[in-house]
Structures are given as C-alpha cells and as structure tokens.
C-alpha cells in the first residue's frame, strides 16, 4: 500500500486563471488536460509543452461545471443547461444540445466511452449516447423542492468502475444508485448530515452532497459535502465524508471532520484503492487523504486555493486540481 503523508504531497506546478476553474479532465494517453470555469470557456492545456499555455476551444453561455471524456469526444456541461461535444483531437465543437432546463451541475462518462451522464437542478439525471447525443434514459428520483418549499439541487453523479451503475446525489443528502442498462433505481441512501436548513436565524439552507465516487472494486460509494453549519452565511462547517456499502445500504465510514472546514467538492480513489482523496474548501482550500481499511485520516492539509475538481493519474502518484484562480499539478511521493 502506498502511504501518504503531508510532506509527500507537493504542488510542483501551477497555472493562474482569471477566476474559478470548476472542472478538469485528463485526456487519456497524453499530458493534456481540458478545463472549464467561471469565464464560460472550455480550454486545453498541454503539460508536455515546455511553457504550457491554455488554448481556448470555445465557450458556453454560463459557468462550465462538468467535463467528461467519452471515446473521441470531450463533453462539457454548463449552467446554461447545454451539453457541448468537442473533438478531443482538434478541440472543435461537434454539437451543442439543450440538455436540461436548469443548471447542469456535473457531467460524467462511462469508461467504455459510450454513455454520457449529466445531472442538473431540474433534478433529472440524463444518460446520452456519446456518439449520437440521443437521449437514452431519464432518471427521476430526486425531489424538486426541499422539505421547506425551496428549489433543491442535483449536484453530483458518478459511474461505477464496471460501468453498470450510476449514482446521483442532491442537496438534501438523498443518494440514488441506478442501473445503467434499464434506468431503474436499485438503491437509495441518505446522508442528511450534509444539508443544513436554518429555520430560526437565517431561514434558508446551505450544503448538499457535492462529490460522489465509487471505490475501485465498485462495492463502496463515497459522498462528500459539508457538515451541519451554525452560521450559514459562510461555509463554516466541517468538511464531511460518508462511505456506504451501497448494495447493503449501510454506511461503513463516517469522517465528520475535526480540523478542516468547508465543502468537499471532489472525491477520488487511488487506482489500487490504497487511499481516498477529498478536496474542496471555503475561503481557503484543503486536501484530505483517508485510509478506509484503517478508517483513519492520513492527511488533512490546506491547499493554496479552494479546489473544485481534480483528476488522479493512472499510477496514483500525481493529480491535477482545478480551483479558485489556479490549476495545480501535484505529485505524491511514497
């Protein structure tokens, strides 16, 4: 097992951006990454270049919040409700489709490259054929309103390693696991500790499950967000992670946080399952590494910026993170 310590996780390169970068993906078999953010743009960065410079592919009409690599395409989703298909080699737009009536919060793809998954604040998860962009399934299992009559939000989605299941999670902490082939719900889970409704002081809510990922063996499903918050003007709650054996519908791990405050925006496993990484932030950023076998926190450190997304390389010794005004290349040395 690869041990991780604070001193072994280092930023080795960083790139400044004009605002928040919300989503990043790595192009397989290359050192290229694609990213999008608050400038509405979808851009490419080739880390193989001596002095990498971002190249803009095109733009949405609002924040770009999801990216996935599906075969020969990159697919981006944005708060404009549209999905855009991009040619992975040329960076040219292949097609744009109206996919959701409200903000798209995340985009994923199956590993076989055939299906694109999008989730949005219309509270629907849609599965799309990656080649034709035809709609395959609409997955409806999340309430449109919170129990207090306000709009809910569908923040997160993930695809199981065997491509057979899709998981989705919303603002009030409701998680649904779906069968990809049929579009049927096969499990529901609850993580209400990640949603704070303040009925007395401020009368609105904050939180929600912002990150989801399956373990490499597909048995566990991890969810991340922020714990209960006293003053919901700020992200002033402990970063929170819960892990479920989703088939048994049992929570196996709870990391309520004791040092790090803010939202868990992204969760990723080491390819071999050695550790799980959580990243996010409030006004600052953070990184946390967990050993699920020992049920322990290996690392909980500040990051230079609030991190919104990251992608771990296939060897598990490096990752690239997208955050508030920066893209950060990290190395993990055992």
């Amino acid at each position: 097992m690869a041990a991780v310590k604070s001193e072994s996780v280092k930023v080795v390169k960083e790139f400044s951006r004009p605002g928040p970068v919300f989503t990043i993906e790595a192009v397989p078999d290359s050192r290229r990454v694609i990213f999008g953010g608050a400038d509405f743009q979808v851009c490419e960065l080739d880390l193989a270049q001596e002095k990498p410079e971002p190249r803009t592919w095109g733009a949405h009409e609002s924040y770009v919040t999801g990216l996935a690599i599906a075969g020969r395409y990159a697919v981006s989703g944005a708060y404009d409700g549209h999905l855009m298909w991009w040619d992975l080699e040329t960076g040219k737009t292949v097609r744009t489709i109206p996919a959701h009536k409200k903000w798209i919060r995340n985009v994923a793809a199956t590993r076989d490259g055939k299906t694109v998954v999008s989730v949005a604040d219309d509270m629907v998860c849609r599965l799309w054929d990656a080649e034709s962009a035809s709609l395959l399934h609409e997955l409806r299992g999340h309430e449109e309103q919170t129990p207090n009559h306000y709009p809910s939000m569908l923040f997160a989605c993930a695809v199981s390693p065997d491509d057979q299941h899709i998981a989705t999670a919303d603002k009030v902490g409701h998680i649904v696991v779906w069968e990809r082939a049929t579009g049927q719900s096969v499990a529901t889970l609850e993580a209400p500790g990640m949603y704070t409704w303040d009925p007395v002081q401020r009368r609105h809510s904050i939180g929600g499950i912002r990150a989801l990922t399956f373990s490499p063996d597909g048995n566990l499903l991890a969810a991340g967000g922020v714990g209960k918050i006293g003053n919901i003007d700020h992200l002033d709650g402990n970063a929170r992670v819960e892990v479920f054996d989703w088939r048994k519908k049992e929570r196996t791990h709870e990391f309520p946080g004791d040092k790090i405050k803010g939202l868990v925006e992204h969760l990723a496993f080491h390819p071999g399952g050695d550790w799980m990484l959580a990243a996010g932030g409030a006004n600052d950023g953070f990184l946390m590494f967990f050993d699920l076998n020992a049920k322990s926190v290996l690392v909980q450190d500040k990051a230079p910026v609030h991190i919104h997304d990251l992608v771990v390389n296939s060897a598990g010794d490096s990752f690239i993170a997208a955050g508030h005004g920066k893209i950060l290349l990290y190395e993990i040395k055992s």
Partner: peptide
C-alpha cells in the same frame, strides 16, 4: 423583513433559494 441574505458563502445557491421566492 425577509432575512437573511448575507451570502458570504455560496451566494448563487442562496439566491437560487431566496430570489424566486
């Protein structure tokens, strides 16, 4: 008085709740 709009964090989600109301 409709409180509380003081969105130092998550301004857009807060306004997604409060502005439609």
């Amino acid at each position: 008085g409709r409180a509380w709009w003081d969105s130092h964090g998550q301004n857009f989600e807060t306004h997604q709740e409060l502005v439609p109301e």
